[in-house]
Amino acid sequence: MENRLQHVLLALGKSALLPLFLTLSAASVAEQQSNADEKGAGIDTEFFELGAFIGIINIEDFASEPVVGIRSSFHATEDIFLQFNFGSAEVSRSSYEKNAVDLVDSSDRDYRYVDLLLGYNLFPGEVFPSSARSALSAFHLVAGLGHTEFGGEENFTYIFGAGYRISVSDRLLWHVDLRDHLYKTNLIQKNETVHNIDLTTGLTYLF
């Protein structure tokens, strides 16, 4: 489990550092190609988002815990986007466990999830923080599939949620999201479907 965590974190570490490296390497390629291809030269694009979030996740039968994670999106059209999330929380002992026995070993108390979501901008809009300023916003819905690791279990997870985002500046977006993670578990010695709901907020950078 630890090993796996390290690998996940490594992979994610790479994903954070690689854009920098690739941007630099791509820059030199682009330089060579700039004369060859006039198409789109000099036009900046804003298709991708990368950022982090922080919030609270309620883990059914256990506790509500702080959660942190990485969020990245690709905007395919004005309506649809794809989103990849990684979130992590450490689960403290539940009130039952404090009075009786531990249900989950201390080594398995890390809660981790990976989400692949399809998003739809249901209500794109504009807000006016002051008379001189306007900011683009959107209320969006997401649904998708993922993977949850907790208590030594790995579970296929369905995710449903809704969120709101607003542009703080041209390229910086502020998000508030509410998501339900559903999966089947028998961690407390009976099969059940649990709903783990997280409320998060975060910033992403558009590029």
Partner: peptide
């Protein structure tokens, strides 16, 4: 997962070379 991340990023870089350059 790493392959996925890598390919996503490399495709991203190759497709938007001009933009990344900026």
């Amino acid at each position: 997962i790493s392959v996925f991340c890598l390919s996503l990023l490399s495709s991203l870089a190759s497709a938007d070379q001009v933009a990344s350059h900026q």
